[in-house]
Design a protein around this nucleic acid. Structure first.
Lengths: 192, 192
DNA sequence: CGAGCGCTTGATTGAGTTCAAAAATCGTGG
DNA sequence: CCACGATTTTTGAACTCAATCAAGCGCTCG
């Protein structure tokens, strides 16, 4: 379980085996089965999650009870409600497992602790945050300027493996269309 | 001109007058008249801007030539294409002045330089980035779950002064509707 | 093996766009 | 400071993309 995290981190920053032994203790290993909710909107989010196996998602539920997916997190992704985590404000998002999963969970204050062991880690997390900021911006732009079909094609281009792995209605939720509409979009794309 | 920046920073971090004298030199004062383009999409963004007076905006132009506004920056706001600035990648956004404005412009590497003078500055900028990340998320969520009217009401609630100051067609562009639609939305809101 | 979930298909509705033109407002030069 | 041209806003009518409602099919997993 921890070896996956080690391999992942090796690709981003340099550290010794003994440093990794220290880092390890900052993560609690957790096995979560499909459907398990790890964060509820409204709660203060005390954790962030690194996915070792399986897939999590974050989503909002709107006033009509509809889910809108913000992020998928398959293997080697981090997921959290960053705003709640950083500022200790109520979370906007729910986080749950959409497959049986194994995650490494860390507590708030983790960022400082890991940076104290491996200073480069701080820059790594800043880069990760920048990446998700950019992804969010791109997504907003595509909602401002692209059609549902374009957003779908963008999705399968950006996340080809997710597109095969995640139920279609969740892809619909992510790109912001009704499941019926996505079904029709796929039909149209296939016939062209 | 610099006194505005000083007042702004005083509200966020502590520093001495002599520290401020050092910080000052990191900013170039610039007077820009309405319509002046400060960043073109595709360029590498070398600057970020602090608005002392007037108002800037960032926006994308889509493949049909339509503008979509990403951010307004009136007095005491920062504006930049952060991804381009941080990673030296081509900018997604244009930045221009929508009023005659006065800005303080800093170069890349500025963050490290200011943090060397006033260590707290780093945390301040991280907080600012977190805030815009959250704003972006909220905006995405409202595109996923709210109607045009709801997004309009949200806008005037969040930015009441901007709503009076910025041309209506730019508000339309920001909330992602045609100018004609916003006109009708306003009419409907007024009659209820 | 059957109940429920996910996907598809059809018919209808509706929010918002587009195109066109008039009305209002702005800004600039004489 | 006023007038005129340009830009912005409003209004109307037709249209379009996607949502909604409804029903049927097929799979899987309990």
């Amino acid at each position: 379980m921890y070896s996956i995290l080690k391999d992942y981190l090796k690709g981003k920053i340099n550290f010794t085996d003994s440093q990794f032994e220290e880092i390890k203790h900052l993560f609690a290993a957790k096995t979560v089965s499909k459907g398990k909710v790890l964060l509820q909107a409204g709660e203060i989010n005390q954790h962030s999650f690194f996915v070792v196996k399986g897939c999590l998602r974050s989503y909002v539920i709107d006033k009509e009870g509809k889910e809108h997916i913000i992020q998928f997190a398959p293997e080697n992704w981090w997921i959290s409600d960053l705003n709640s985590y950083n500022k200790q404000e109520p979370a906007m998002f729910f986080i749950d497992a959409i497959e049986d999963s194994e995650v490494l969970m860390n507590d708030r204050g983790f960022n400082e602790k890991i940076a104290a062991i491996v200073p480069q880690a701080d820059a790594m997390f800043q880069t990760l945050t920048q990446n998700s900021f950019r992804a969010m911006q791109k997504r907003l732009v595509s909602h401002l300027s692209a059609t549902a079909e374009e957003r779908y094609l963008e999705f399968i281009k950006t996340y080809p493996t997710l597109a095969l792995r995640v139920p279609q209605k969740m892809i619909a939720s992510y790109i912001g269309v009704a499941p019926e509409s996505l079904s029709r979009i796929r039909k149209a794309v296939a016939h062209q």
